[in-house]
Amino acid sequence: MGNTAQESKTSRRGFLKALTVGAVATCSGAVFESARAERTYPEQKGKHRFVYVIDVRKCIGCDACVAACKAERNTPLGVFNTWVEKWEVGYTDPNTGETRVKVLNVPKLCNHCENPPCVKVCPVHATYRDENDGLVLQRYERCIGCRLCEQACPYGVRYIDPIMVVMNKCTWCDHRVRNGLKPACVEVCPTKAREFGDLSDPNDPIWELLNNNSIQVLKPEEGTKPRVFYIGLEAIEGMYVGTGSSTKNQHSPAIWTDPADGKVYTYNVRMQTNKFRELR
């Protein structure tokens, strides 16, 4: 009788052990599998496939887009959804000694990446990629304000909204583009340096721009697959541009030699001024 009780106790213990080990293995397997799956996002295949094209050769740096964005999205003081950087590119041909300088106005905004690092790190899925059109958007009512997305974003486009006190970002004016309009910044651009289109539509004029020009993206080495395409940044973006600026309190211009053709570029970069950062 004692033996039977002992045996049944032993078998129960063994069963419980096996059950615990099995449960732990299943749960950890599921966790690892989901984590692996979420490391890289699959290609977005929705009804729409919005892309944004910026031709820096056409941009005159009038900041009308910045003003339009502030008005359309009611963006508070001290934060920007879009801004225009001024890059001074000096170029010397070592063969002729001839020096040329050109100024590029480089508009920046959220890249609505296909593989968005901000979505991956969000602990509550407040930032998400809309599978229907590929827009990377924010659920304001769910955001906890940990600012992990801001740290993860390599483009520095995310910010804490001083009024809502949660993360906010450029939405490519989702309220407009989903109703057949273009984003406010595209609409106001006087030189058509900013273009917006839908790759799922074969007749969209954006295809012509993309097919006829050399296209660059910002920080391709980050593997984020950005969907803001730049025209006119050949051999410029993607390489190191140094801490250069000509104004006081700043470093002397950085010099970079292109090993391919021996040309020397110097850079002065002037960013959007923001004297109200502490408002956040």
Binding site: V79, S245, R270, M271, N274, R277
Partner: peptide, 10 residues
């Protein structure tokens, strides 16, 4: 130096 406008030490 030139810094992105949204950047602060969070």
């Amino acid at each position: 130096g030139p810094t992105l406008p949204n950047h602060i030490v969070e």
